[in-house]
């Protein structure tokens, strides 16, 4: 997974520490700690994972393993408008891949990347529980159903205004 190199400020380190503590530094709470940390920082750079690893006494390799396993977690800052394409079974068979390819082409980024102007990021997710609307795309909190490649340009233009 690609990542961005940053330096954490002392108050940011303390923030992570307090998140870990709020979950009792329990190994079983790792996913919750990661959720909360991503909520705070917008993403989970290696430096944040290292602090979590040290604080919770969990090997950094394991923390990284969990971060890279769940598509929800990201190691690069998401765009202002995060675009997610569902590639779960129902969406996939109804053409999610062609929709995804159209987004890649229009935004000129790959999955897991953020556009240079910071506006859009692209990710895939597995099932949002709206299979009847397959294929499904979400942009931020808004959901689009039965999306065809031809709709992509219009969806993007909504956010360029």
């Amino acid at each position: 997974m690609s990542s961005v190199k940053i330096e954490l400020r002392q108050d940011q380190i303390e923030k992570i520490d307090s998140i870990c503590e709020s979950f009792g530094n329990q190994e079983g709470e790792l996913i919750n700690v990661l959720h909360k940390s991503q909520e705070t920082f917008g993403y989970l750079p290696a430096e944040v994972q290292e602090v979590i690893s040290e604080k919770m006494e969990i090997p950094a390799a394991k923390v990284y393993g969990v971060v890279t396993f769940y598509s929800f977690f990201s190691m690069i800052p998401k765009g202002e408008f995060p675009v997610s394409i569902c590639t779960g079974t129902a969406c996939y068979v109804r053409g999610a891949e062609t929709v995804l390819n159209e987004f890649k082409k229009q935004l000129e980024i790959e999955v897991g990347e953020t556009s240079t102007d910071g506006k859009f990021s692209l990710s895939c997710l597995r099932c949002v529980g709206a299979c009847g609307l397959a294929p499904v795309v979400t942009v931020g909190d808004k959901t689009y159903g039965r999306v065809a490649p031809d709709d992509v340009k219009e969806i993007i233009s909504e956010y360029l205004k």
């Binding site: 090997p59 390799a61 890279t68 396993f69």
Partner: peptide, 9 residues
């Protein structure tokens, strides 16, 4: 040691 772990999906 914790050097190795399964990563990615």
């Amino acid at each position: 040691v914790g050097a190795l772990h399964a990563v990615n999906r």
